[in-house]
Simulated assay, not measured.
Amino acid sequence: MSTLIRPPPVNPSQSAIENLLELTQLHDIDPDLFTNRRPLWHPPGARGIYGGAAIAQTLSAAQKTVPPEFTVHSMHCYFVLAGNSDIPIIYHVERVRSGKSFVTRTVQARQRGKVIFTTTISFVRQNSGGERLVKHAVEKPPVPDAVEGMDDIDQDRSTERPFQSQRIEIYNDDSPHPHTKKCRQWIKARGTISPAGGHEAHLAALAYMSDSYFVGTIARVHKLWRFGSSSKANIKSNIDDKVLKKLLAMSDSDLKRIGFLDKHEIELIRKVKNGEPVEAESSSEQNTEEKPEVGMMVSLDHAIYFHDPRGFRADEWMFAEMETPWAGDGRGLVFQKIFSSDGRLIATCVQEGLVRLKQSTDTPRESKL
């Protein structure tokens, strides 16, 4: 069973993301124990549940143990084991410190007695910085506005996700230097977050969405082939097979319109459809005949710094810009800045992930960290 307690009916007064992230507090066992109220999503091809769910639900659990005048300003997370969507998760909040200006909570997510995810979260008392403040913030870059009603996942699947996203063209995509590129997208929670959810619901929603395409930035800036074999008959993908089949059936003009793929991915899809070989781009580091392929990509840790935790709405379009300063030794680092649509920097995120290429000597086996 994927939940400890039978899920209640969907609350129509709440948004999809609020319903998904609801927790049940296990008062009779321990007031600092919580569990997921609804089943969690296991993305196709992923090793476990969507990481954003663990990030958001640990934040939600911690927020329920903190006085209302305190607001989260940072959280530092580690993905320890892949979460199983068929097993309930128990969240244990440890009240590490409750001071006058700052409150600290550590939350562990457990399945079958093992820690699968852990985070330390810091909260700050509202307006504790004083009347005179040191202030500055980077500006949102000039980009096309989000288009209402559009999503970068095809419409047959869009309602499965509790948020919408629209990728826009990679900045500096033609550069030979991956660290100079920036991957960009618009994101927002689907529907309207209820007034009863308060600012806590918007923070949990942002935390959930912050893991969207995050470590995947490394594959995108290196233009790595993510769709498996160059043979159409034997094609294998790390995305949903149904989506891949639809991509292969689309015309080039339709592929460009949906915004799901980058320019080079559209060209690779075209080659696969036509039975042409998918070759590596010429460079000093890519001199093999076949294009390098992602063999394993897993998030290792995730940090969020909330800059304006009560001054934004997660159900309004937010702009996210991601860049990677370094990759090597089977890992990569990505920075993400999230802005409100009117240009305010509302959060900065950092993630390190395991990024391994498929080796020519690889044989099918279960991947383990």
Rank of each mutant, 00 (worst) to 15 (best):
H73E: 03
R38N: 14
R226A: 08
V138P: 05
P141E: 09
D342H: 14
L333Y: 14
K291H: 14
R226S: 08
G52T: 02
I218V: 12
V294T: 12
D262N: 11
Y91T: 04
A303E: 08
L300F: 09
G83H: 03
N127F: 09
R112L: 10
S15Y: 01
N274S: 12
P44C: 03
R105C: 12
S340W: 11
M322T: 04
G259F: 06
H27V: 10
F335S: 12
K140Q: 15
I121F: 09
K337S: 15
Y50G: 03
A189I: 03
A137R: 13
V355P: 05
P67Y: 01
T106V: 13
P364Y: 07
A320L: 11
H42M: 12
G228R: 10
E323Y: 12
L133Y: 01
F227K: 07
A46E: 05
K242E: 01
S98K: 06
G191P: 07
D151I: 03
H136K: 01
K246H: 12
S15F: 02
Q166P: 10
L261V: 04
S158Y: 00
G113Y: 07
S2V: 00
S283C: 04
M1R: 07
L247D: 05
D362A: 15
A146W: 04
P309Q: 08
Q155P: 00
D174G: 02
D173Y: 06
S341F: 03
Q164G: 03
L248E: 04
D254C: 00
M209Y: 10
H92K: 13
I258P: 03
F117A: 07
R125T: 01
P43M: 00
T159C: 03
